[in-house]
Design a binder for these strands. Structure first.
Length: 617
RNA sequence: GGGCGCGUGGCGCAAUGGCAGCGCAGUUGACUUUUAAUCAAUUGGUUGCAGGUUCGAGUCCUGCCGCGCUCACCA
């Protein structure tokens, strides 16, 4: 429950005084004629004073009273403009609200008047009428800004505590313009991606988020339950299998932009829910997907930043095609200076890596493919791929949905034949050392696909992330014939990071996931008081005991515990009554007063609320 | 999950184990062209929570909560 602090109490006091003066704090309606930007633009046409009448609205971001004249800056989404406020123009009554700061910084107001320039040269609204639109009862953090002559802005004071910014994103957005801009660019990124994919002739579709079987990626899912159907459901970890079924249905190319959920660790580039883009296009292979990928990134960067050359964390990245392309085998040769095909088993490879000091953190029981992809690429090469780089031709045992590499095995020696047999047409691409996406020539042979499911089951433990449940319906779809196709998946949040120069995924998510803080004793008390009020109502009704039990203000089913609220002075002599209630209740019963918290036993045993809370949660 | 770091008025920060302070914001007053306005006066704190050591704890110790970085895991 809200406990107003000193500043908030002052604002509540101001609110009372405004209401006493007959002013509505939250009136209905508003007659804005111009956005702030439009008002300034309209004035630029003809700078004659008094000729441009406007009604603008916005939040007060600065208020500076100079006696009988005051200046305010109001801000709407389009920008800021100064209000020139004079006693003579507004009248005594209205002007006093400003001078006495009953109308305050952070309030929303509407101002009407004509556009003018102050003596100092700032374009302003010569305000003749000022109306309160919404009173801010809590002050926002203070950030002052100074505009320099060259147009740049420096800020004084800041709101930068990351935890508070993420938990109270509204305040972050309200105060930090640069944060607002990130999310405008995010919207533009997603629009550009849609425009691009639409123009490629792809159909946007929506597939289930709640799936009875998850698949299409190597990740742990969230599980939930449908009560009526008595069925567990998974939140999707990818769209892949549902999208590819649609190619069987006759669409040549489909895409989806939406949320995936993966029950895994968070980091600067991982969030439990994230936005994914996947597309599948018939009659192209992974080379075709590479071409689309390069063009899509270049196009999107141009739409969002104006150029396919972007600045990211101090580096210039050139997203224009063509990107560097090399196979993972070539990458290992180039960066680590050996040919892993000389060590075609996990034991041999492990022995080599160990002998060459490359085995740190490597699990010797891992599969051969995981050693190459997760360990060599992930730990030794990835971070060096700064400019956009496509790494292709991945080992088969980490690529259950990719078609094996196409190549002429005739005349190849044994090593090359083994290479062709053990690799797939799959690529990932990396920008600034970060994996940006994953694509393959999709496997469309149902017999091979079934073999892969079985192979994955054999290779990996039940609880390994690599385990992919066998999806019979997917195989059935494929047996009807799936056109050859290339598929693509990419984390949109990471792309937004690149285009907005942010180094943490949390800064491109409006509401990044944070752990719920344990409720403080005061919060609990407040909650109980509130519930007690509700309970009070229930008790006035003449209800059967079972019903009363159900309606106990705070009945906690998981603990079979109930909490009673009493005023401290009503506690005396009520022990017998409480014990009756406890018996009727047949569970644990606690009593709370405005000062203490008790467990009902043969007598009342005082305890700490936090201990109680801990014991049941 | 491991390691490192952080948590002090609304916001940003300070304080050898020794009076909890500063700037901005706020409050009161002055000022009819200010713009980080200025000038004068002034309010506001159970230092994340719970224990411990000590004559004395924001500071040292233990546990817990939250956040950040990092490693592991993963995409």
């Amino acid at each position: 429950m809200w406990q107003p602090n000193k500043l908030e109490k002052e604002r509540l006091e101001k609110a009372k005084r405004l209401e006493a003066a007959g002013i509505l704090l939250y009136p209905g309606g508003c007659q804005r004629s111009h956005t702030v930007a439009e008002a300034i633009e309209a004035f630029h046409g003809e700078e004659a004073p008094g000729s441009t009448y406007v009604a603008v609205a916005g939040r007060i971001r600065r208020l500076n009273s100079k006696g009988k004249i005051s200046f305010a800056h109001i801000e709407d989404e389009s920008g800021r403009v100064q209000l020139f406020l004079r006693l003579n123009a507004l009248g005594e009554e209205s002007y006093e609200l400003v001078r006495r700061k009953l109308i305050d910084v952070d309030d929303f107001v509407q101002a009407s008047g004509t556009m003018m320039r102050t003596r100092a040269g700032e374009i302003s609204v010569d305000t003749t009428k000022l109306t309160l639109l919404s009173k801010a009862l809590s002050p926002l953090p203070v950030v002052k800004e100074q505009r320099h002559e060259d147009g740049s802005v420096s800020e004084y004071g800041e709101f930068k505590d990351t935890e508070t910014r993420y938990r109270q994103r509204y305040a972050d957005l309200a105060v930090n313009k640069s944060v607002r801009e990130v999310f405008i660019k995010r919207a533009r990124t997603i629009k550009a991606l849609r425009d691009f994919l639409d123009s490629e002739g792809m159909l946007e579709v929506e597939t289930p988020i709640l799936q009875s079987l998850y698949g299409g990626a190597a990740a742990r899912p969230f599980v939930t339950h449908h009560n009526q159907l008595h069925q567990d459901l998974y939140l999707r970890i990818s769209f892949e299998l549902y999208l590819k079924r649609l190619l069987v249905g006759g669409y040549d190319a489909v895409y989806e932009i939406g949320r995936d959920f993966r029950n895994e660790g968070v980091s600067y580039k991982h969030n439990t829910e994230f936005t994914m883009l996947e597309f599948y296009k018939a009659y192209i292979d992974y080379e075709g997907v590479m071409d689309i990928t390069e063009r899509m990134f270049a196009y999107t960067a141009e739409q969002v930043t104006g150029s396919s050359r972007i600045q990211y964390q101090g580096a210039e990245l050139n997203l224009a095609p063509p990107w560097k392309r090399l196979s993972i085998r070539e990458a290992v040769q180039e960066y680590l200076d050996f040919d892993y095909m000389d060590f075609p088993t996990s034991d041999a490879l492990y022995a080599y890596l160990r002998a060459h000091g490359l085995a740190d953190g490597l699990d010797r029981d891992d599969t051969w493919g995981r050693m190459i992809v997760e360990h060599l690429l992930g730990n030794h090469i990835e971070e060096r791929l700064i400019q956009p780089t496509i790494i292709k031709d991945y080992p088969r045992d980490v690529s259950p949905f990719a078609k094996r590499i196409q190549g002429d095995a005739d005349g190849a020696d044994e090593k090359e034949q083994l290479y062709l047999a053990s690799h797939t047409e799959r690529f990932e691409f990396f920008i600034h050392g970060m994996e940006m996406g994953n694509a393959f020539t999709e496997l469309n042979d149902p017999r091979d696909q079934q073999a892969r499911f079985v192979e994955m089951k054999r290779l990996y433990d039940e609880d390994s992330d690599e385990t992919t449940p066998l999806d019979e319906d997917y195989l059935r779809a494929m047996r009807f014939g799936m056109p050859p196709n290339g598929g693509f998946g990419s984390g949109v949040d990471r792309m937004v990071m690149l285009l907005t120069d942010q180094d943490s995924i949390r800064d491109v998510l409006l509401y990044p996931h944070l752990r719920e803080p344990a409720p403080s004793e005061n919060d609990l008390r407040g909650q109980f008081m509130l519930d007690a009020a509700v309970r009070q109502l229930a008790y006035q009704l003449d209800l059967p005991l079972a019903e009363k039990k159900r309606r106990i203000a705070l009945y906690l089913p998981q603990a079979d515990a109930g909490i009673e609220f009493r005023m401290a002075n009503a506690l005396e002599g009520s022990l017998a009554q409480l014990q009756n209630l406890r018996r009727a209740f047949a569970g644990k019963l606690f009593v709370m007063t405005d000062e203490h918290f008790y467990r009902v036993e043969d007598e009342l045993v005082e305890m700490r609320i936090a201990d109680f809370w801990r014991s049941i949660s």
